[in-house]
Amino acid sequence: MTAALGKDLIGLERLSPDQIRLILDTAEPFKEVSERPIKKVPALRGKTIVNLFFEASTRTRISFEFAEKRLSADTVNVAATGSAVQKGETLVDTAKNLEAMRIDMVVIRHASSGAAQFLGDRIRSNVVNAGDGKHEHPTQALLDLLTIRDKLGRIEGVKVCLVGDILHSRVARSNIWGLTKLGAQVAVCGPHSLMPRGIEELGVTVLRRVEEAIEWADVLNVLRLQLERMEAGFIPSLREYYRVFGVTVERLAKAPRALTVMHPGPMNRGVEIDSRVADGPHSVILDQVTNGVAVRMAVLYLLAGGKPELADAAKGPAAGGTD
């Protein structure tokens, strides 16, 4: 019955397939809430949620904020950008301060991998990882899964290829866990200088060229290429990247079957993705954004009452009655 998520959502690596399916199924009715004239339900009335963003992010923060407000939670946004040296200190102190203020949930975005885990281990409040360094971005992967399921009717057996900078991508890691757990076939494609060591051992195939990816896949999830990767010498130039790995209309024309193109945003048009692809019929990029709010509502809702002992109690005798 109830597959509780536990106290925190840190990553998809530690969720079971059933837990992931529960979140996706719970997201379905929340899609409808956002279509109502009054886009708000009282499920999290009286809950206090802090959106703690140590790293700049517009769309993820807004998506979480909509999700929280549509569940009637009280939200506070904290944009904290500390210097590299003070980051760790700030995080400990922030954790203690939040605890002292008796908040119910924290949504955290941080440049250091493990920051969400660190916070979750130290406070009683629920912690939702909104992206930690190069580790995971679980709600992004969940919304990607929901979008694939909406578009193709299933996830099992679907061939999904992540294209781009796998090495530095938390979106890639969360997608690999989520997709493989739900039975999709997963490949990654990008320059080998941006491919992490041992990635095949996570159950994915490495494709050398984007043409191979297009020939193989049902879904391409095109990752954002950060400009600083060029400056750090991982690739020679953005122009060459586009020539070799860019997802273009011309390349997609050679796809042997209908191909769905996704992108977690924000896009670099003309770097990893052709504008005509982003705005074209293959693209479900805006569906991803819509699903983002529903998935985040589902996660917040499931975590809100998600003290494991309460969820267990709910499974008991009381659940058999009506009303």
Binding site: G114, D132, K134, H135, R173, P196, R197, G198, I199
Partner: peptide
Amino acid sequence: HEGLVATRLGLKGIP
């Protein structure tokens, strides 16, 4: 260490 654990944890490895 640059290896599978670093890949999973998203931490930069030292080869």
